Computed example of a mutant assay.
Amino acid sequence: MTQITRAAKMVDMNPELEAFLPLFPNADLSDPLTARKNLAEFAAGAPAVDTTGMDIEDRTVPGNPDVPVRIYRPQAAHGAIVWLHGGGWVMGGLDSEHPWASRIAASSGATVVCVDYRLAPENPFPAAIDDAYTVLKWTADNAEELGVDPECIAVGGHSAGGGLAAGVALRSRDEQGPPIRFQLLNQPGLDDRQETWSARNFTDAPWMNRDKVTAAWSHYLGGAPASQYAAPARAADLSGLPPAYIATAEFCPNRDEDIDYAVRLLAAGVSVELHQWPGTFHGSQAIVSAEISGRQNAELGGALQRGLAG
């Protein structure tokens, strides 16, 4: 059984997840092009979601530059989410995110606007958040065409995408942008400082560990200081933000910064649902055949459904 160093003892991973570890792609972020290729190949082999009756359309959102999106419209969708893929701000795109964006749409009944934001290191901060914010404004402005209530628009994402979503929520609050109903943050990357216990100690965790997180932040920031929109944990004021669902994985470097962010949101008067998944690691919900992954993915859809309903 795979054991992960945790202070002075070894801790076991969920055995269902352990069997699939050899199948996870190599995410060596020192070579972004190869890492992107590996992630794309892994996603291509992911189990398909039944999208019968779901309208799926690729569009281009006007901006500077224009932003490609893929829109998933389930039947009778009421609300929408601007969805931001993971990949350490370095990997991922519309095709690699298709298994997960379609799953969110199917499980929540919400329209999903998946954003193909610009990637680092070629395009460091603020390129990705600028793209995400452009799509948020476009979604709100075109809510009628999309068939959704403009008051029922959420932001969300996995990992780096979760950090982007939290940054978009802060920016929209500060710039009096479109109202955001809900934040769906799954294992978000929120703090470049990496000072928490989990960030310092999970050096041998699967898929994402301290060294890879360090590389991801370096690519994303491009040597510039981190603002609160790049690293939302740096925000001094979290009041006035939308309600949030935050999910963490036990063996994830981001775990403690996510829990800290949830506690700070609560202290600022923001409603939060926090779910810590034992025995899991960063991104392990992609192992969809595992029972715990099924519960994780279903909970994301259920949380979004509840959040959009208010």
Rank of each mutant, 00 (worst) to 15 (best):
A247C: 11
H219N: 06
W217S: 06
L241A: 07
A231M: 07
Y220W: 11
A215F: 05
A226D: 05
A224P: 03
A249G: 00
G223N: 03
A247S: 15
A247L: 13
Y229E: 03
P206F: 01
A244T: 04
S218L: 12
G222W: 04
E250C: 07
P242H: 03
H219Y: 02
Y229D: 07
C252W: 01
K212M: 13
A235Q: 01
A226M: 04
T214K: 15
Y220C: 02
T248H: 05
G240I: 11
S227F: 02
V213I: 15
A224E: 13
S239V: 11
T248L: 01
A235M: 08
P242K: 09
G240F: 09
I246L: 14
A230D: 14
W217C: 01
L238I: 10
P243R: 12
L221E: 00
A233K: 09
D204I: 02
I246M: 10
E250T: 10
R234I: 07
A205V: 00
L241H: 11
A226N: 07
A235N: 10
D237N: 12
F251R: 00
P232H: 09
K212T: 13
W207V: 15
D204N: 12
M208H: 08
A236M: 13
R234D: 08
C252Y: 03
P232C: 09
F251L: 00
A244N: 08
H219L: 02
A236W: 06
D237G: 03
G223V: 10
S239Y: 09
A249R: 00
E250N: 08
D237I: 04
A224K: 14
N209T: 00
C252A: 15
A235I: 10
A249M: 08
M208V: 15
P243Y: 05
H219S: 02
A215T: 13
P243I: 06
W207L: 15
D204L: 07
A230L: 09
V213S: 14
G223A: 09
N209K: 12
T248R: 03
G223W: 06
A216W: 05
R234C: 09
P242I: 04
A235Y: 06
F251N: 02
M208S: 14
W217E: 04
A226V: 03
L241R: 10
T248D: 04
Y220I: 09
A215V: 12
F251G: 00
N209D: 15
R210M: 00
T214S: 15
S239G: 14
A233Y: 12
T248W: 00
A247Q: 15
A236Q: 14
F251Y: 06
R210Y: 05
I246G: 08
G223L: 08
W207E: 12
D204C: 02
I246N: 09
G240K: 11
R234M: 10
Y229N: 01
C252N: 11
S227L: 04
A216M: 11
A230Y: 10
V213M: 15
A236S: 14
R210G: 09
A224F: 03
P206M: 01
P225F: 05
